[in-house]
Design a protein around this nucleic acid. Structure first.
Lengths: 183, 183
DNA sequence: GGCCGCATGTAATCTGTTACATGATTCT
DNA sequence: AGAATCATGTAACAGATTACATGCGGCC
């Protein structure tokens, strides 16, 4: 019996609703665009609806039906206090594994930058520490290998290089988020 | 109506059988170890059996039952000509997306080094070209962004850094696979 | 008249995870 | 006697993809 915790993608849906109410169709349209979180992952329309219904059942979201002349009825979704708390908690935690950087960290970063640059820089600082720790453990693994373990060495060297690149990116990223947009 | 093609993980199972016959239990044991492909992904025992049965049904594998006094009956698995062809074809192709490097390319590299260094170096050369092409397209994407698209720029810069690190790793990896093990 | 866009989904299928079943032998 | 190892799985569930269902309004 395990308590429920939303998946990455569900947190991203909560992220949309954090700033304002949306309806399912609209969220899916956003995700189709070649910008923002839409670049991070592709979600099918049917899955968006399924996930939103699940979040509603879990109590993270409430729905209000809006009927208008010019369009079909829309299910307007609002974040509950529980949903808001869950989202903010998720948003500020670093991702637990290097392989989660590509999708999960990018999602966090997207919503963090949307809210305030402050949250984004905190997230980056926090994640950099995690990355440094990963680098150290991979380093140790490499050091512990024998000369015969060529594949294993190659594999850990790959991981090392990827994490190293993440760290360099985090540094650059922080600077570019702080500097104002030139006119 | 789409013709069946094994998944990455199924190709890895075929890879085991390419050099010699194995039975399911044995393959799973190998995958549990902290070496070789076992470092690349974790597969549950029940899934190993499920996948092997699927491959048998698809005609990539044939099974012979071996009974002995000292152990329970073993289902010894052999690669069919079709299975061998499918494996070798997969093995020599570069992975189609950067995100497949971590698991799929590593699997290929593992089996390639097991067979001959020649196949491994060919694979590396081939994959390097792919990576260079990815780098160029990401570069173009970055160049096409406006100053306001800060998140998008950050995201593509992340991808750029990851691919760059892959290229550096491929170079180093090739050298270290060629050089003989020092005594 | 027919197709596209809006807006909601359901149903079937596939892949993977978790937990359990079976029955023999070897180890403590 | 009880536990672990060997070797095969099955059953139930969770998540994601694919395809289809529905009904209204506007455009060509």
């Amino acid at each position: 019996m395990k308590s429920y915790s939303p998946l990455t993608i569900e947190y991203a849906l909560l992220g949309f609703l954090y700033q304002q109410p949306w309806y399912g169709y609209e969220i899916h349209q956003q995700l189709l665009g070649n910008a923002g979180v839409g670049l991070v992952w592709r979600v099918k329309q049917s899955q968006v609806y399924a996930l939103l219904n699940k979040l509603e059942q879990q109590g993270y979201i409430t729905a209000v039906l809006e009927t208008g002349d010019a369009y079909p009825p829309r299910k307007i979704l609002h974040l509950t206090p529980a949903g808001e708390a869950a989202f903010l908690d998720w948003l500020q935690k670093p991702v637990p594994q290097a392989r989660k950087m590509r999708q999960e960290f990018m999602s966090k970063l997207y919503f963090a930058t949307q809210i305030t640059p402050m949250i984004a820089t905190d997230l980056i600082t926090c994640q950099r520490q995690k990355c440094q720790a990963w680098l150290a453990t991979v380093q140790e693994k490499i050091a512990s290998l024998t000369a015969e373990q060529r594949f294993e060495r190659a594999l850990y060297q790959f991981r090392y290089g990827q994490i190293e690149a993440m760290l360099q990116w985090l540094d650059r990223c922080e600077q570019e988020l702080i500097t104002p947009i030139p006119v």
